[in-house]
Design a protein around this nucleic acid. Structure first.
Lengths: 213, 213
DNA sequence: ACCCATTATGACCGTATGGTCATATTAAAA
DNA sequence: TTTTAATATGACCATACGGTCATAATGGGT
């Protein structure tokens, strides 16, 4: 639907190189800012060639987006399954660490997501963002619901508000890890794993017990 | 330093119109994406004219940035002073509502800040972001410190981590208010004031008592 | 009425963009 | 060796960008 058949006839490693190079460009410059000229020159192919693979810039973007979303979805699903029997706050802890690992493994995907969040220009931005945030909040909602049944999560407070708080803190934690100057002095950015884990522990404790009293 | 004398000789209302129009363009498209051509055509002036006011795109951007930062700084300072005698969580509540009001009064400033946060292209981005986040986290730090003295804030937890959590939740709340599809189903975006206040109350309660037990 | 400093103008420049297409190259089939 | 279908190419197009500059319009002081 989005890529031409010529693209799929390419050797798999070339396909991947094309996708990774384009992903890097999009995640650094955003949709409008990304340059097809730069992508092809980085790939060492003629400009016409990339238009043999994809009908236009938009198709290329959407194809990459789908590829990235699928990766995220799989990762979330796996964590959810792996921690099925753990206590709720341990699951939250593990989810955060899984996010850190994901950023480490696919640095451009998370940057691209951040880019999109505050870009008006990306095609279908609204729909695409909704797709991501939806299964992110579905994930947290089910976590908290199961936590309530186990008596680990308070029942005297609105579920949606708790999901909002969780989502906000977790997302910001990952943003701070992926971007400098976003963490109010915690200096999370690319911190080594052991110290990250220490901070995760503290934050989860705060989410659980609050800052009051 | 950043604007030419010609600009300051302009009638004040024209100065303001120029700044507001440019601010709107920058906040919608980001630094690179913003078009001088569009700005002048929206203003109904010749392209050459704006180069009589500012030496180049960068100067225009930095001038607007300073103007915006000063507004934010003043607002924060005022809230801090106005709530001097209130309990800590009431101060947090009031700060959030002040943020909502600020967005209502200066919608493009907050959007511009969000844009910058995830743009690599803006000139001096790192330094500029640091300037904002610094006095934001200084503000929260002093709030919490005074709260500790009054015995309202727990002392058995790292202060920096609490500031991080506060900052994350408050910032995300304002982001969700200013941007659709960012609130995990709370639908804060441009919600009417009375309902906003209800949500603020709930969130502050959660920050205080946590989601656990 | 003249002067003159200040401000406004828009054609123009070099560069870059996304996209096109006739043609060249390749490689397998005949 | 010849034919044929698939792939690669880069000159070229219209458009837009930030920025320049010689010139025109303006308006207060004399």
């Amino acid at each position: 639907m989005e890529a031409k058949k010529t693209f799929f006839n390419l050797p798999e490693e070339k396909q991947k190189r094309v996708l990774e190079t384009a992903l890097e460009e999009f995640s650094e410059k955003g949709y409008e800012g990304a340059s097809i000229n730069l992508i092809v020159s980085k790939l060492g192919i003629a400009k016409g060639s990339i238009y043999q693979y994809f009908t236009d810039k938009k198709s290329l973007f959407l194809f990459i987006f789908d590829y990235a979303v699928e990766l995220i979805r799989k990762t979330l699903k796996q964590v959810k399954h792996e921690t099925k029997e753990e206590p709720t706050f341990e699951r939250i802890r593990r989810s955060l660490l899984a996010g850190v690992d994901f950023i480490e493994r696919h640095p451009f995907i998370y940057r691209g997501y951040l880019k999109m969040m505050f870009e008006r220009e990306a095609p279908f931005r609204q729909e695409l963002l909704q797709r991501i945030r939806l299964f992110s909040s579905e994930y947290l909602t089910s976590l908290l619901l199961e936590g309530r049944e186990k008596g680990e999560i308070r029942k005297d407070m609105n579920l949606e508000t708790m999901v909002f708080l969780l989502d906000a803190v977790m997302d910001r934690f990952l943003q701070a890890y992926a971007t400098p100057y976003l963490d109010s002095g915690l200096n999370l950015h690319r911190m080594k794993r052991s110290e990250i884990e220490r901070h995760v522990d503290e934050i989860v404790k705060l989410i659980s017990k609050g800052i009051g009293r």
